[in-house]
Design a protein around this nucleic acid. Structure first.
Lengths: 205, 205
DNA sequence: TATGAAAACTAGCGGCGCTAGAAAAGGCGG
DNA sequence: CCGCCTTTTCTAGCGCCGCTAGTTTTCATA
């Protein structure tokens, strides 16, 4: 490949990222309903059709933003888990510090980047979850939850799934104004206590 | 008021309801993105501007559908709770049959009427939750969850809020394809067990 | 410097939410 | 029974949307 072609490819990749970033910033500033192809094109200072040479359509741009978000979320959860006071293999029955830290990190992420969170978990998407084609960052984020439970727990995947779902519930309802945003810490503590609390042992029910 | 005016008002109210029902049916059949004012007008066999003589805009129609949904959800939860084997004032610490029944009814509702559920809990809305102007049916639905916990539990509102949120989490993620739809029963059992399980007593933590 | 492929643009299609102004409907006094 | 006049309903159109066909511009190469 010639040097010229290399430069062009480099510039193209930069512009690709520029579009994703612009979409994300526009959404974070004014909400996703304000992200139109026209406004986005103006933001990146190119004409509308250029967007379509990078992405199949608006949905594909949204999808790219979401996947970028999964990467950031996974990194954030991982950092929180590793910084937690105790190792993830805590004695059964005791509330895990790692679990609490990861859950709080998740909620902080949802609160600080509501539009990004929406792209990832609320807006319609064709991103495959829990599937062979699941983007690795998404899988990685999920695994951070799994790692908060003892590896000899046969139901740790279920634990992780429900923990995630419960957090998503309070994050989504709070973001859309359906529950007051103030009680989040209380709700977080409650969820962690209940899930890590009892019956984390092998034979529940 | 003259008989003629009365008849007109009656017919108007019927058409009002017709619009709400048509919107709901169209959404349930093809999803909310297919509910446009043009298609809706065609469905009710009137021209577009007639919609605007009944509602301030598309958002108001959506809102009306959601509120209708709250009423149905409240009725359904209530029926489930009253039909549950044990009364809501079960001995502390034991899993409440009422709680389980109400939670299952909630999930069934979300599964059977996904579009209605979306209007109520996912799509952007200006309906006031946990507020003075909260529509009574919505408040009633929430109270069904509250009633599943002992009245001497000072944190029963928190219990209800988090239970609802957790259910919403699994309902929303399952509906949007973000968690497999098959595990819902397992997740439901897990949530109910964990929430009703321990520490339902007075001094938790 | 002329050429031809690649890149970027202008312009436009059909559909959206919404509304102004024309047309039709229908109860009312003569 | 008729002509009036309010109320109701419709036609037509505005600015915006996602998206694309076809033209113009750019620019490395011969």
């Amino acid at each position: 490949m010639s040097a010229i072609a290399r430069r062009r490819e480099r510039e193209r990749a930069q512009r690709h990222q520029l579009i994703i970033t612009a979409a994300r910033e526009l959404a974070e500033a004014e909400g996703w309903e304000a992200v139109t192809t026209r406004r986005l094109a103006e933001h990146v200072e190119y004409s509308q059709p250029v967007l379509y040479s990078h992405f199949n359509g608006k949905d594909a741009i949204l999808r790219a933003v979401a996947i970028e978000g999964f990467g950031e979320l996974a990194a954030r959860l991982r950092r929180a888990r590793l910084a937690a006071p105790e190792p993830s293999e805590a004695p059964s029955g005791a509330p895990s510090g790692a679990l609490h830290a990861v859950c709080r990190a998740y909620l902080d992420f949802a609160t600080e980047r509501p539009a990004l969170y929406q792209a990832m978990f609320v807006l319609p998407t064709d991103v495959k979850f829990a599937h062979a084609e699941t983007p690795p960052p998404l899988r990685a984020a999920f695994d951070e939850f799994v790692s908060c439970f003892r590896s000899d727990n046969p139901r740790r995947e279920l634990f992780a799934e429900v923990t995630w779902s419960a957090l998503h519930g309070i994050a989504a309802l709070a973001d859309s104004g359906r529950i007051p945003p103030n009680g989040q810490t209380e709700r977080l503590d409650f969820i962690v206590t209940q899930i890590a609390g009892t019956s984390s042992g092998p034979a529940t029910r």
